[in-house]
Write a protein that binds this DNA or RNA. Structure first.
Lengths: 168, 168
DNA sequence: TATTGTTATACTCTATAACTATA
DNA sequence: TATAGTTATAGAGTATAACAATA
């Protein structure tokens, strides 16, 4: 109560406003949020996501699209369904994802030689060129995100993240 | 090359299928992803998000909604715009967020005493009751996510996350 | 002039259900 | 019968631009 402006004290209109509308002038109270792992994880992820966008801005690729392109690159000929399973999204969702990458000329829906129901996905030459340029860029960006951690701390950090993922 | 099935070796139809359609039977290659901080951060966040949903399933509250409710609880009377700024979303986006919470009877749009353009947001009695029940539940869940880390490691982990957020 | 809440609009991500072609 | 891709549909989350009321 010590720092609260009471009715008996003088208060400017700004005081009154800031008392009644917290956040207009000062910071808002965060309650228990700053102590939650989930809250800090979310904030870190948002920071990395935004920084990623900046770092690869000229190519207009999201982290999710980068992941999909990597999977296609590393597993040429895989189907949309298998890709969806691998990255954790439904096959109906995958349709539009591949639509976008295909319309940008990065991915090719080739006919599958064994199964006429499915496509064999692969990178187009443009997609391969893009990824050859993008991968080192993304790796450099990723290193930049942990530049304030010592090499030992970086190893520990990734280890912690993996242990949290596994504790599901 | 040692483990690759060559044309001269016998290959069952399943062999052929798995060679041509990686992922159908075995795991897919992940390339450089597992070494990226961003990839592991994302995976950990997805794990925490899903676990959160399970933990508070009966209340049907997302982590984002929980954050909004906390901010309203801790800063009673704040406006939609200030709330949006605090949680990093546009005021036009905040409209539907508050719409949902209000239609569920958790949040009240009270008239602002100073500014007839804006609302003074507060929790309804039901919203307060919900949060009294939810907060310890969320804190317990959050602890569960790092149960495989020692107390010292948990402190370190949050410290790492904050440093990554700041390195933006 | 600037700000608050709102609406219209648009785009991404996400899913479920049902359809077609194929296995 | 089961599976792959697709479409229709729906909901959440996100934004920008413009508007009315108010500051």
């Amino acid at each position: 109560m010590a720092s609260t402006v009471t009715d008996n004290e003088r208060s400017t209109p700004a005081d009154r406003r800031s008392r009644l509308r917290p956040g207009k002038n000062g910071k808002l109270a965060l309650g228990p949020l700053p102590d939650l792992v989930g809250y800090n994880l979310r904030k870190a992820q948002v920071a990395v996501f935004q920084s990623f966008q900046n770092a690869v801005a000229p190519h207009d690729i999201t982290p999710g699209q980068f992941g999909v392109l990597i999977m296609i690159r590393e597993n040429e000929g895989l189907s949309q369904s298998d890709l969806g399973t691998a990255v954790g999204i439904d096959r109906s969702t995958m349709v539009a994802v591949i639509d976008r990458l295909e319309s940008r000329g990065l991915v090719v829906r080739a006919p599958s030689p064994n199964d006429r129901r499915s496509y064999a996905l692969r990178l187009s030459p443009e997609g391969q060129t893009l990824m050859d340029d993008l991968i080192p860029r993304v790796q450099a960006h990723d290193q930049g995100m942990v530049k304030d951690l010592s090499p030992e701390e970086q190893v520990q950090f990734i280890d912690f993240l993996r242990r949290v993922s596994r504790s599901k």
